[in-house]
Structures are given as C-alpha cells and as structure tokens.
C-alpha cells in the first residue's frame, strides 16, 4: 500500500507538487494523468525517493526512504538509464545482488523471455534501442517482486507486443496484491485496466475518481480528463 500525505515539492520558483495527498491500496491500479508539466514525474520521483520533498510518503507503512521500504518497491523511470558496459543479463544479476534476492535465475529467464529479450541478454546497455532499454528497466523493477511499483510513462518507446505484455503484467501485479501507480498522458494506454485515477494540473491533484464513480456518471476517462484540465 502507498500513502502520500501533503506532498510538496518546489524547484526554484516553480511549485511542482502542491500539497498532494492520495493512497493506493493493495491490489489497486492507480493512474496519474495530466498534461505535460502537471507534476506527474515529480510526484513519482518523490515517491521513489529520488527527490527531497515536504510531507510524508509511506510504502506499506514504512517511510519511503528507509531501507525496509526500498526493498518493497520497484520503479520504472521515464527515460531508461542503463549501465553502458553491462549486458542485459548483468543488469538483472546486479539488481538480484543489490536487493539480496537470493536464487532467482528462473525468474530472470522468464522475464527476459516475456519481453523478448532472451536472445539479447548478452547485448550491452549501450547497444540497445530506447525501447529495448525500457524493457530492461521494466524487467529490473519486476525482478524484485515489489509490493508497490511505480511506472513513469512506461509505454513510451515500446512495441505493440511489449505494450500488450505490460498491460497483462499490470493485471497480474494487481491480482498478486501489488499497488500499481502508472503515470501517463496517453489515456488510451490505461483504458480498461485502472481502478483509480488522479488527474493532475499545475502541480496539484485536481480530481480523484474510482472506476465505479466514473461508470456511475457514464463518462469516459478522456471526457473527464479534458473537462478537468481544460475546463
């Protein structure tokens, strides 16, 4: 479970996250929607512990920057950042060691197979296309079997098959009780899989709706998005 309370983040004179509060329950898929510059990536980075912030962020009841919390969450960055001199497989080996995952070779092989990386496992990070790098990033985050997982624009650069696979993974994670947070501005990409939406604008969550709320009002996610962001 993820709990964000009064999150505030300022860069110089720009308030990127203004008093944001929300939670994502176990087995829930939450999507952060918003136009460019709304503060989605900043929010995700604060949750991942990559930025300083004011407020509180708890992962399964533990402060997000604590070692205990770090064991529990995975993060897929907006721009994949791989080590140039490590192969695809060595990235997974490194994560397995850094997170002290024990024996997980089979899990690595399965992930590589699933994302069509098995035949590229000896390729160096610098030799991969952006889409391939994104797939490796996703595999690294999934390898730790997280309780909370953060995806920042995960579909960008992926081929249609990988997008389909990833959507399947979102649902599997949900079934396993993982809290999934997906930041995106491509509304179509999360249609049909989300449980809760948080629409952001100018650094604030301006609307929060569950799927049931939306079904009751007979509105589409896209309609709601434009109504909120352009209204």
């Amino acid at each position: 479970m993820l709990t964000v309370k009064n999150l505030y983040k300022q860069y110089d004179k720009i308030i990127a996250a203004n008093n944001i509060s929300f939670d994502v329950q176990d087995g829930e898929i939450a999507v952060l929607l918003g136009p460019n510059g709304a503060g989605k990536s900043t929010t995700i980075k604060c949750i991942a512990g990559l930025l300083r912030y004011e407020g509180s962020i708890d992962i399964c009841g533990k402060q997000n920057k604590s070692i205990e919390a770090k064991r529990l969450f995975g993060y897929v960055p907006e721009t994949p950042a791989l080590y140039e001199m490590l192969t695809v497989y060595e990235h997974l080996e490194f994560i397995a060691q850094a997170y002290n995952l024990g024996e997980c070779r089979q899990r690595m092989e399965n992930l590589l197979e699933r994302f069509e990386l098995a035949d590229k496992k000896d390729k160096l990070g610098k030799e991969l296309s952006k889409g391939m790098q994104q797939k490796v990033s996703i595999c690294c985050a999934l390898l730790i079997e997280p309780k909370v997982i953060l995806f920042d624009e995960p579909m960008v650069g992926l081929d249609p098959r990988a997008i389909k696979e990833l959507k399947g993974i979102f649902l599997e994670l949900k079934e396993k009780g993982c809290s999934v947070i997906i930041s995106t501005h491509i509304i179509d990409s999360v249609e049909g899989i989300w449980d809760k939406t948080l629409i952001m604008k100018n650094g604030a969550v301006v609307m929060s709706r569950t799927r049931e709320d939306l079904e009751k009002s007979a509105e589409s996610l896209e309609q709601l998005f434009f109504q909120v962001t352009e209204g």
Partner: peptide
Amino acid sequence: KPYIYLIPA
C-alpha cells in the same frame, strides 16, 4: 542513474 538511490542499503 536511479539504481543507487533505490537499492535497499
């Protein structure tokens, strides 16, 4: 890169 910030240590 984000890994050093993320690893539990």
